[in-house]
Amino acid sequence: MPSSISSSNSKPDLSCDEMQEFNAEHGSKTIETHDEVYSKKQHIPYRVIPQLSWSKIMFFALPLLIFSLASWEFLAYKMGHRSGTYQTGFDNMWAEERRKLDKPNNIKMVLLGSSRVLWGMDFNIMREHLGSQPLQLALPGTGPALFVKDIVDNTNFDGLLVVGVTPFLFNRMDEGHFGKGALDAYHHQSPSGYTGAKLQDFLSDYFAFLDEGIFDA
């Protein structure tokens, strides 16, 4: 006689003694076949809950957790970390910048290449002369070819592409050291990945320990 897929009146909150009985019947040692299980009086095998005093546990745990995190934040601050900087890493930062080319914009210059382009540009001077902020799409340890191709193939950008020349990287046609993650974040970022990055940005405005870089205090 098959049992129907229907509810029962099992008690959800079992004590440890009941748990022992339950384990003796359904535990690791007694693995029954599906038929054997279904031929018995049907019940939902509710989980066993240890009978702990959660008011006491939380009374200790919450202040201890807050104190630990405050201490960690203080330590991070002492080590030179600061809140309020863009914290979501190269991949998301790059993807966020790259998306600017997909929207209407007044970008007149895009910078591509490796770390020397990333660190060696004075944006204040360039902005003064161009009248708009250049778009920084250089990545450390990465050749420009793949990224030039991406911009030519996939955008309507008609401004100036400045390509950095790093001899041992210039002819690389692959993604280099950071390109794959950056391109993946741009092309394949999931909705949850996008919201996660936004939430991380929001929290990093308040917590120095989320800062991955170290700056002079």
Partner: peptide
């Protein structure tokens, strides 16, 4: 089982592990 082990722990130790 994990539940049986936790059942025997004092509250302060559960707090410390949790934190």
């Amino acid at each position: 089982t994990l539940e049986a082990v936790y059942q025997k722990l004092p509250a302060w130790l559960v707090s410390v592990i949790l934190v």
